[in-house]
Write a protein that binds this DNA or RNA. Structure first.
Lengths: 95, 95
DNA sequence: ATAATACTTGGTAAATTGACCAAATGTTCA
DNA sequence: TGAACATTTGGTCAATTTACCAAGTATTAT
């Protein structure tokens, strides 16, 4: 059926389709954060955060940097914030 | 936990997170289509397409226009195509 | 080496999603 | 009115998602 590129695009949107992952992206856009910092901010199990980050990494949205005991995450490309603004604007318009 | 706006944003991305729905949006961006036309293009049950359209409508992405026996769908705001291009570009860059 | 901290991975259970079928609704046309 | 077509809605089932816990891995510090 439908061109396989649609599947790939859908997978990308799916990576963004969770409140916690959007929150994580907003946070690390400001400054790199390690898993335990994000865990404390969100208030769920650390394994849950780790899996969200793993998913974002697989989708090429974030990159990790292991330093010492910690793993720090940052945005792979800040251009995703442009996309965020675009969506936020369009959500502002309708109810 | 996390600001409820994240939930709303996530819901919007979720609406885009399906190959069939992306295909539908691309198609109706070119020209309005009725449910049965989209059904034939995609090749699944008409009820499945109807539900995808209903979801897109609830998210404010498409609008419907009932004319005669048919229901025609169009994009509520073509600005979503800008967002699409942005995502397509970023997917082109990494493998 | 051992303990402590940070993170990842595997398992499980509950919730959600997506597909189909069948039935209900609405519109046109004879 | 009744038949035919277009669409929506409800039900069911399989697959996916997400959260937690527990166990495993890796690094630092004693």
């Amino acid at each position: 059926m439908i061109n396989p590129k649609y599947k790939k695009r859908a997978k990308f949107y799916k990576a963004l389709a969770h409140p916690t992952r959007l929150f994580i992206i907003d946070q690390i856009a400001q400054q790199e954060k390690c898993v335990c910092e994000l865990t404390e901010m969100v208030g769920v199990d650390i394994s849950t955060i780790s899996k969200h980050l793993s998913l974002l990494k697989n989708e090429g949205i974030v990159v990790e940097d292991k330093r010492g005991k910690n793993v720090y995450y940052t945005l792979k490309c800040p251009c995703i914030l442009t996309l965020f603004d675009c969506v936020k604007d369009s959500l502002k318009e309708d109810g």
